[in-house]
Amino acid sequence: MLKLRWPARPPSAGKSHRGETRWFTQRLVETSPLRAADPRTKLALALGASLAVMLPLPRLGLFLAGYVLLVAWARLLPEVGRHLWRARWVLGLLFVVDFWLVGPELALTISLRVALLTGVFALFFSTTTPRELGLALEALRLPYRYAFSLTLALASLSLLEEEWQAIREAQAARGVQPGRGLRELWRQAGDLVAFTVPAIVLTTRRAWNATEAAYARGFDSPHRRPYQSLRLSRLDYALLGVCGAGLAVLFWGGRFLP
């Protein structure tokens, strides 16, 4: 059986946890079949989707149709939908501005491209843990210390969001509230210091504490040996094959396609 070669988990392991795993502002969807795919495959899919944004509108539409099928199979429609909903203002603004400046075709193309990239982001981070991303980056020859630092930074983003909220509350308790309207513009600029200084201090402190914690557990050891290793499974080959073939047809399909 070709699968990610994780050491077997004892039966007690599973989804007994109360708190969901979140990282990079993203919830990990354990039930998705894409969880079993190698993170390198998902990186390749993401790269392929990023290339697809260069397709002209009719072919981009075809790619998007295939992409929606993939998302539906991966049981990630709610997750991707949530992301697109968050990006609705950006997408709407892009559409309106492009429609006004150039025309409906470009407006639709640009909006679909941004929507596709947003969806790819959601698909990857909903099904990949920081550890898996780190392993994939290491497999791509990125030195461990950089791969680890990158995944740690991404994993900390959701914490930064919480800290920002805490700063807003703490400053509100001192009477510093974000002002509204042009008349308060000067005051708002002054208040910005009240939010940014603590944010910088907390981020720096968190980064330093993480550095200390990592080095206290032998982060720089030359003897490091990864506990888990990656191996492509049939699922990975199937995904890579289907997506690669699809992209090839879309890019070089010639006169058989719109």
């Binding site: 050491p7 392991a13 795993t21 979140r22 990282w23 990990l28 843990t129 920081p130 550890r131 740690l152 994993a155 402190r205 968190r206 504490n209 993480a210 200390e212 914690a213 990592a214 206290a216 557990r217 032998g218 982060f219 050891s221 003897h223 490091r224 040996r225 990864p226 506990y227 888990q228």
Partner: peptide, 27 residues
């Protein structure tokens, strides 16, 4: 402030990997 990973297991495994132990010993 000293948590580095996204699961309890991974947090413990992080330090064990750095000792260069075999996966069986880590387990």
């Amino acid at each position: 402030m000293q948590m580095l990973t996204t699961s309890v297991e991974d947090e413990i495994i992080f330090g064990l990997e750095n000792l260069g132990l075999s996966p069986a010993e880590v387990r």
